[in-house]
Amino acid sequence: MCRWLAYSGEPLRASAVILDAKHSLVAQSLDSPLGAETVNGDGFGIGWYPKGAVAGSIPTVFHSVEPAWNDENVRELARSIESPLFFSHVRAAGGPPIQRTNCHPFRWENWLFMHNGFLGEFAKVKRDLTFAVDPSLYTHLKGTTDSEVMFHLAITFGLVDDPVKALTAMVDHIERVGREKGILFPMQGTIAVADGATIWALRYSSQGRSRTLFHSVDIPTIREMYPEAERLSQFGEHAHVVVSEPLNDLPGVFVEVPEGTIAILDKEGYHHEPFRSAA
């Protein structure tokens, strides 16, 4: 459906991973070997927190409906943005129209959210799910995607106070409503959400066959494995990326996030938690 990338660490020029890596996000927009669709040309988005950001800082977002490989603004921005935490996403539209309000990442206050996947037979559940969004958030829904509804459901269910609990409640609700409508596998995908300091990355599907998700190992470990790799010099000791598929083919640099897992990336590094819906 889509490809996405999340970075956290020392401030990094976004082009290092969006443009310059061997299998960068823009390269994946043209050729995505592990994706459900090979080409992801229905829009691009980037959301970034400012250099020197403090807790609660509001991220900036840019969206374009142009294919990422053909948009000069993408290249200009990626080479100019230097950020300690940013999200980027290339879209393959699965039904909702190609328009800026449907491009990821989505923003609410200091939170960013993006998704790769779909809700099964979304048209059947759209009304019920949308009406479950807190009324105070309803006017913030600008687009027509299932992803944006998911984000606002997570906020409704307490994302600010406990992201893991809120994401669990969101999936439980989606699966309950979907199965009431006779949908066998209501939920599919990988999700990234961030508050400016921590990234939560979820891999889950009702069928147990989720879209791919990987994260990098620690930079000191990579430097030990590849001491002559000059490109590593641009990354700080705490640089990490979470990606739909690896940015290079170097063995050991990326590890796959297991099915039914939420990977949490904070200042201490990664830790994984099992993710199960109670539905």
Rank of each mutant, 00 (worst) to 15 (best):
P135M: 01
S136T: 08
H140L: 01
K142H: 02
G143Q: 00
T144I: 03
T145I: 00
S147D: 02
V149S: 01
V149C: 06
V149K: 00
L153Q: 06
L153C: 08
A154M: 03
I155A: 07
T156D: 01
T156K: 00
T156Q: 03
G158P: 06
V160G: 03
D161Q: 12
D162M: 06
A166H: 08
A166Y: 10
A169F: 07
V171Y: 09
D172E: 05
G178D: 08
P186T: 07
G189P: 12
T190V: 15
T190R: 06
A192K: 07
A192M: 15
A192Q: 13
A192T: 13
D195C: 03
T198L: 05
R203E: 04
S206V: 04
G208M: 03
S210I: 09
R211C: 14
T212P: 12
V217N: 10
D218Q: 13
P220E: 10
I222H: 13
R223V: 09
A229D: 15
E230L: 14
R231L: 10
L232A: 06
F235P: 05
E237K: 11
A239G: 14
H240F: 11
S244C: 01
L247I: 00
N248T: 08
V255L: 12
G260M: 09
G260N: 15
T261Q: 11
I264K: 09
D266G: 09
K267C: 12
E268P: 09
G269Q: 11
G269V: 11
H271A: 07
E273Q: 15
